[in-house]
């Protein structure tokens, strides 16, 4: 998934091989991670796709099923992985992930502590940011989730960058060997304030903490505790708004008797239906315009991101 192994690196030469992870893209909301295995099939409503047909093709290829349907085979990235990973917990999405990595100032070589591991969505992006010489130490109190995450990281070739450990950070704090060793710490815990005294000991001077909490009450309590030992305490909410883009034919005012603004949508529809039959006869001033507007529904809340810097002693 990451470019740390040059032989696996995405390139014009590279072809899909047996054992590769590919992201099967059907539609923007129908994406799946598939491990290519000679002799295996991939099935969806468009038919059966033979893995053996995929081997030898470049990433990004469009491949056909027995019925002539198609899917695209994409090279995996942490962003795609976030969309396809199996949700064992609520996960962080792109807007939050990208902001966390920037604000934590994670760069190659950094040591990052994370709790909990959850489904490993953020962990994967953190690993990309610390590669090749840094490391992400991630902790989860749930044994099964920890080992599932560990398996995922191994399969995705990131075990040299990530260590998963079973530990209750709220209860026990981070292990002592990380005292003063962490460039940044990320917490996604139900009661993050309990872990803050430990975080304070783990961070290097001027190191940054981020705590992700869905509820403002959690933020409130965390900030009360952060007052001691931390500075630059800031809480954010980050969301992403998507836009629809279409090409529309707009009517000018000429040739239209009454064109109050209110009736414009109806007129436009009529215009389009007419255009299907005979293009330019009806209205002479029709022009084609590319128009954009925000999508009507979107995620309204994910969580609050509270950042703080270890105060300089």
């Amino acid at each position: 998934m990451l470019s740390i192994d040059p032989s696996k690196r995405s390139s014009l030469e590279r072809r899909i091989c047996d054992g590769d992870l590919v992201i099967v893209y059907e539609r923007h909301d129908k994406i799946k991670a598939v491990r290519v295995q000679k002799g295996s099939d991939f099935q969806n409503r468009f038919g059966v796709f033979k893995h053996s047909d995929w081997i030898g093709k470049p990433f990004g290829s469009k491949v056909l099923s027995n019925k002539g349907g198609f899917v695209h085979l994409l090279a995996p990235t942490p962003e795609l992985w976030t969309l396809v990973l199996s949700h064992r917990t609520q996960i962080l999405y792109l807007a939050d992930i990208s902001f966390v990595i920037s604000y934590l100032e994670v760069v190659p070589g950094c040591v990052v502590l994370e709790s909990g591991t959850g489904s490993g969505s953020l962990t994967t992006s953190l690993a990309r940011a610390v590669a090749p010489s840094g490391h992400v130490y991630t902790f989860d109190f749930h044994e099964q989730r920890a080992s599932l995450a560990r398996e995922d990281f191994e399969r995705n070739g990131m075990s040299s960058l990530i260590t998963v450990t079973v530990r209750d950070i709220q209860d026990a704090g981070f292990p002592d060997e990380f005292c003063g060793a962490a460039d940044s710490v990320f917490l996604d815990l139900p009661q993050p304030w309990l872990a803050l005294p430990s975080v304070r000991r783990m961070l290097k001077q001027d190191g940054v903490l981020c705590s992700f909490s869905p509820c403002i009450e959690q933020v409130q309590r965390s900030c009360e505790v952060l007052g001691a030992g931390f500075t630059d305490i800031r809480t954010f909410e980050v969301l992403l708004r998507s836009y629809e883009v279409r090409e529309e034919r707009m009517i000018g005012t000429e040739g239209v008797q009454d064109s109050p603004v209110g009736s414009l949508p109806r007129k436009r529809r009529q215009c389009i239906s007419r255009d299907v039959n005979n293009d330019s006869k009806e209205i002479t001033t029709t022009t084609s315009t590319i128009i954009a507007r925000p999508c009507r529904e979107t995620k309204g809340h994910t969580g609050y991101l509270t950042f703080a810097r270890l105060a300089c002693s």
């Binding site: 807007a95 902001f99 933020v219 800031r234 809480t235 954010f236 909410e237 980050v238 969301l239 992403l240 708004r241 998507s242 836009y243 883009v245 954009a292 925000p294 609050y304």
Partner: peptide
């Protein structure tokens, strides 16, 4: 096309 939205508290 997307546009991020950022609000501080």
């Amino acid at each position: 096309i997307s546009e991020p939205w950022l609000r501080e508290y």
